[in-house]
């Protein structure tokens, strides 16, 4: 039996697959005007994204921004010799920027959503009260543009994964599910390590913040609309 090495920690994998599920659900609920569901789902995505940013600073080796957000020079050097590259655990220098870009676009998407108002002034994000109607409509425009940008980046991401999975023949999907990949002969790579306590503390703070956002930072409201 081949030996395995752990390359993705549990929070990264949970983040990845929950994000996929919630993004799909948000898309569906938005298209079908199920705005109560759309708001709930969006708030959960806010929590996920904030957690991922936190985990980029506090997570395991492959989760950290320091490991995968490289200077442009390194990215170029990597792209030039990409044909003879060896497997990089975590994100490679090019993929790292794709992840960073997707995170930024998704953060823009959900932030704009929090401030958005629909044309009828009827449905709005929990923070729309801080903007005028016109401001809220502008936020909705940004929400729409960021959504299209996110779809484009997700499309690129899926193409890149498909390329490695089926043309290069390197399994990337399996490790994102199980967290582990086969060790090559004679290879010595340490498994990633992470602290559940740190994850829980981060999660607790983020959930409290997202709860406050869901209330629009107004904790005594006159009526429920």
């Amino acid at each position: 039996m081949t030996e395995k090495v752990r390359v993705w920690d549990v929070p990264v994998r949970l983040f990845h697959w929950s994000l996929l599920g919630l993004f799909t659900f948000s898309w569906w609920s938005g298209e079908n005007h199920e705005m109560e569901w759309h708001r709930q789902s969006g708030l959960l995505i806010v929590a996920l994204l904030l957690f991922r940013v936190f985990w980029g600073l506090a997570g395991s080796r492959t989760a950290r921004f320091a490991q995968f957000v490289k200077w442009p020079g390194e990215v170029l050097a990597y792209a030039r010799k990409a044909s003879d590259e060896h497997a990089t655990d975590g994100h490679n220098p090019l993929g790292g920027w794709s992840v960073a870009a997707l995170l930024l676009v998704l953060l823009t998407l959900v932030t704009a959503g929090l401030f958005s108002v629909d044309v009828d002034g009827l449905e709005s994000g929990p923070l729309a009260g801080f903007l005028s109607f016109d401001g809220g409509r502008a936020a909705a425009e940004i929400h729409e543009i960021a959504f299209k940008a996110a779809l484009t980046l997700i499309g690129l991401h899926v193409c890149a994964i498909g390329y490695y999975q089926f043309l290069v023949g390197r399994d990337l999907i399996g490790p994102m599910i199980t967290g582990r990949r086969d060790l090559e002969a004679g290879e010595t790579v340490e498994s990633v390590r992470w602290s559940p306590l740190r994850a829980l503390i981060g999660l607790a703070v983020i959930l409290a913040l997202v709860w406050a956002i869901s209330k629009g930072f107004q904790f005594a409201s006159a009526g429920d609309v």
Binding site: D118, D120, G121, A128, G129, Q218, S221, A222, G223, V225
Partner: peptide, 14 residues
């Protein structure tokens, strides 16, 4: 009308 709806909604929440 949309702006007025938003005013009412914001006031009810605040």
């Amino acid at each position: 009308m949309g702006g007025a709806m938003k005013v009412i909604k914001d006031e009810l929440a605040g």
